[in-house]
């Protein structure tokens, strides 16, 4: 079960990583503008940190809620959030518009944090964690084993790290593939509507959570 958990977390990270709208394209574009690999690496680090923090915040928040609330309530709460976010993304093509192209490393960190948050990147991990928590529910099924604060934090760290690793590998691969080999021409054909697929995924996951 645990193996599956980490595989799914990794896969979700990789899925975020491959979406051009989640950051690698930003890193590649800045690299192309300044003809610099260094800028790509710096941007990727900022993107990864922003993504990790966005995901971490949600996992910790739900983890803490889980200490006090019944699993069923958490499930319904998460499902409601996923469903509304999915429906919103299905009908509105909203995008961030507060950031320019010259926003610096901290700006990219903030951009990445907001992009991941608005996509519900962290939220999507909750059903996986809830599902994992259920069978080992010796004590009413908590997401994070909380024998001690230290092990609790360790769990959060591991969850975020595995997810972020998926994101990191995919985003780095894509950014350098575009910069070194493919060029931006490929965007015209290859930039499929990940956001639409994501919206549907959110809704399906919410339904799954409600029915299961």
């Amino acid at each position: 079960m645990m193996d599956h958990l980490y595989l799914i977390l990794f896969a979700l990270g990789a899925y975020h990583g491959i979406n051009p709208a989640m950051g690698w394209l930003f890193a590649a574009a800045l690299g192309l503008q300044y003809r610099s690999r260094k800028i790509i690496v710096k941007s990727l680090i900022a993107l990864i940190l922003g993504h990790a923090v966005a995901v971490g915040v949600v996992v910790i928040a739900v983890g803490l809620l889980g200490l006090h609330l019944p699993l069923m309530f958490l499930k319904l709460f998460t499902a409601a959030l996923l469903l509304s976010l999915g429906i919103y993304h299905l009908f509105r093509q909203k995008h961030l518009s507060w950031f320019g192209m010259q926003i610096g490393v901290f700006g990219i960190f903030c951009w990445s944090f907001l992009m991941a948050t608005s996509h519900g990147a962290g939220l999507m991990l909750i059903p996986v964690l809830l599902h994992n928590a259920a069978p080992v529910a010796g004590h009413a099924g908590h997401i994070i084993s909380h024998e001690t604060v230290v092990t609790g934090l360790f769990d959060v760290g591991l969850i975020v790290a595995v997810h972020t690793l998926g994101y990191l590998l995919m985003a780095t691969l894509m950014a350098f593939l575009i910069y070194e080999k493919l060029g931006v021409a490929i965007l015209k054909k290859a930039w499929i509507n990940f956001d639409l697929i994501w919206a549907v995924t959110l809704i399906v996951t919410a339904c799954f959570l409600l029915l299961w």
């Binding site: 590649a28 574009a29 093509q93 995008h95 950031f99 320019g100 192209m101 951009w111 956001d195």
Partner: peptide
Amino acid sequence: ALCPNTPHPHV
């Protein structure tokens, strides 16, 4: 719409 900072190329 293809810009990396404000991506929305599917309009």
